[in-house]
Each structure stands twice: as structure tokens, then as C-alpha cells.
Amino acid sequence: MTTGEPGQPRTDRSPWNWLLVVPIVLPLLTFLFNADEPRLLGFPLFYWLQLAFIIVGVACTTIVYRMTK
């Protein structure tokens, strides 16, 4: 969390928080991934791309955590 200057009220506001919107919205856009082709290692797009969104989620939350700690 952001510990401000002494005397300033604490807050959890930060521009970095907007990064959290990305992994919330991305997995809900079905038109991005609702297809069989192209396949990756035998996985249809629908499955491998949604698994890949996990990495996006981890990256975004980690960045926000590091930048606002």
C-alpha cells in the first residue's frame, strides 16, 4: 500500500490500479477466443488463449503490487 508523507492521510489510490482492468476485461471478450483455429500444440484457440490470459493476470497484478507497495 502507499504510505504517504507523514501527516498525509493514507490511501490505496494509484494510477497503476488501472492496469487491473486489463485482466478483468480481456477474459470476458469471447470474440477474441471463440474459435477452434489456429491451434497451438494441438490446443484449439479457445483453450490456449484463455490459459494464456492467466499470464496476463499474473503480470498485471504483480506490476501493480510492486509499484504500489
Binding site: M1, D12, N17, L20, V21, V22, P23, I24, P27, L28, F46, Y47, Q50, L51, F53, I54, V56, G57, C60, T61, V64, Y65
Partner: peptide, 20 residues
């Protein structure tokens, strides 16, 4: 397979809420 996006969306969503 909805269980996957469900558990991707959840953590950024509650990141600030749970800390409060």
C-alpha cells in the same frame, strides 16, 4: 470451461477490495 476465466478475473477484481 467458464471456470478458467472465472478464476482469472477474480484476483485483479478483489486485489484492492480484500486489502480494505
Amino acid at each position: 470451461f467458464y471456470a478458467l476465466p472465472y478464476t482469472v478475473v477474480i484476483y485483479p477484481m478483489v486485489f484492492l477490495v480484500l486489502a480494505r
